[in-house]
Design a protein around this nucleic acid. Structure first.
Lengths: 144, 144
DNA sequence: CGGTATCCGTGCGGATACTG
DNA sequence: CAGTATCCGCACGGATACCG
């Protein structure tokens, strides 16, 4: 019951507040669609140049990719190498820190792989029972 | 190099496309600020009623909390119990599936705990070197 | 209390045009 | 090619009001 992952409950003038804010801030950075996909891409394909990255991370716009990469670079998760040639060539790769994070993210992916069918089923059931009977729905379970 | 977490590159008329879309969809669900914080809260505190949850998950609005909980319920990660009393009382708790996901998320939290100071330092360095010298920045590293 | 419905601002993110 | 700058729509999310 007391897994003690993160408890945002004590943020009122708590000496640990700053620390917690930072942690939460970092999590909110990481918990981002493009961030995860970019880290993943760099993990599976290794060092890549900007344009390739844009292909691999399907659907990302130039703007978002740039922004995401800057963010990652700032956080020390990714390095950026600019080759002094024209036309420009910029390579990105994960830092050791980035790779260690990738491990954790892979953990999530693996979890998804294993449980996605389970979740898909749960969704179908939920959507099916949901006949828009609003007040006191079927799924309501009386207890006491 | 070939960690094989997720590769979004092959989504053009690939027979596996549907599966990958589902996986990505699920990830994008999970990779959400409030989703993570709510799962975490339910993990650390166990079963909780709506109003308590709203206190614990600091800063969440009623609307977002409701939406997030519905999402989680639909995905089979959270159960919702409505006590037939007035005023209403609704308790939420993680399902076994939800708890197994929590484990993975805790992995991320632990990682953050360990590396947050490192990242904070990286940020400061990055921000410091960034004197808005735009073309050919100091951090550009010539290679060939 | 635990919602849903409605209104509404703003900021995320796409599209486009331009530069070194 | 790898950006930056600008414009802009729209969806996300907060605030408010109301209901069972």
């Amino acid at each position: 019951m007391e897994t003690n992952c993160y408890d945002g409950a004590y943020a009122h003038d708590n000496p640990q507040k700053k620390t917690d804010d930072l942690a939460r801030n970092i999590i909110e950075q990481i918990a981002d669609k493009w961030t995860i996909l970019v880290i993943d891409a760099l993990g599976t394909h290794g060092e890549m140049r900007f344009s390739r990255l844009r292909e691999v991370v399907e659907g990302v716009s130039q703007k978002m990719l740039t922004k995401t990469l800057r963010q990652l670079e700032r956080d020390g998760l990714v390095t950026r190498y600019v080759h002094p040639v024209i036309p420009p060539r910029v390579d990105y790769q994960l830092t050791p820190l980035g790779r260690s994070l990738l491990d954790k993210i892979c953990g999530i992916w693996d979890w998804v792989e294993v449980h996605m069918s389970e979740m898909e089923l749960a969704r179908r059931e939920f959507d099916h029972g949901e006949k828009r009977v609003d007040h006191l729905r079927p799924r309501d379970v009386p207890i006491a």
